[in-house]
Design a protein around this nucleic acid. Structure first.
Lengths: 145, 145
DNA sequence: TATTTTATATTGATATATCAATTATATTTG
DNA sequence: CAAATATAATTGATATATCAATATAAAATA
């Protein structure tokens, strides 16, 4: 176990890993796009795959509260990354549409995201990654019960 | 790889694991102590081991910004978990002292923290945990470079 | 159909995260 | 020793996290 771990559990290492990853990722994004966070990037990337996704689903996908998503999207609309229009079939919902600026931004950040992931996982074998994922999912299941 | 992973990388699972762990941990703490967060608990636990620690060091240990620590401690003083006095040798620093209420709280939360960790790691072998820690530390090192 | 329940999203309050600028004190260096 | 530099912590501004309460619309049910 790591010396610099004041709790002595691997759960601390999990937190540390994700924090370091987020830090380096944000730093690399900042070099290319000035006014976007990694979570906002993730929103763009997810919407780019399927624009019909609701704010609710989006919140679940990126582990955020509905309230947080509301405010994130507000900002992203203000910064012209997204358009928001009322959903015709279900008037409680909204359509989230990626703007031209949003699309260009996705093009810019896609390679960075790739590099970030490769950087973080450098030197890990596929087997090691699979095992990591498997163990983490055990923990996720344990915590959900 | 997990179906419910929109990014397709294990880094998403890392984030998910720590979020679920924090959620269940906070829920269990709430049952016993009303007005404390898991990060504030961690502050108490760390200070309980060594009260001579500075705010700076504390921030690094729990992956927070100096500014965040300042405000967290402010609150913890207000809620009577900590006392804060000026450091005599270095007048830029402060002594952080756990109050009686803080000490009682530590007694209350210690068993919960244990249970939380056991819950999260239930069914994992020691070997599996060691490997997890090792892999995570590779990622941490990769991101720090 | 009217009422109740559920789902989607917003708002308000408060805490935390992050960055940059600032204050105060210590340490280093010329 | 004086000036420059470094360190510890705070403050301000803005974004995000979280919880509870609310508004609105849709779906279920009596």
């Amino acid at each position: 176990m790591n010396i610099k771990n004041p709790t002595g559990t691997v759960l601390y290492s999990i937190e540390q890993a994700i924090k370091e990853y987020r830090k380096v990722s944000q730093k690399n994004i900042d070099k290319i796009v000035k006014d976007i966070t990694i979570d906002q990037c993730l929103v763009l990337i997810i919407l780019n795959k399927d624009e019909r996704i609701s704010q609710n689903e989006l919140a679940n996908l990126i582990f955020k509260d509905n309230a947080s998503i509301t405010r994130m999207i507000e900002l992203m609309v203000k910064k012209d990354y997204l358009n928001r229009t009322i959903h015709k079939e279900d008037r409680r919902k909204f359509n989230l549409e990626i703007t031209e600026k949003g699309k260009k931004t996705i093009e810019l950040i896609n390679p960075i995201v790739q590099v970030n992931r490769e950087t973080a996982l450098y030197g890990l074998s596929q087997e090691e990654i699979n095992l990591l994922d498997k163990t983490l999912n055990k923990i996720i299941t344990n915590c959900k019960i």
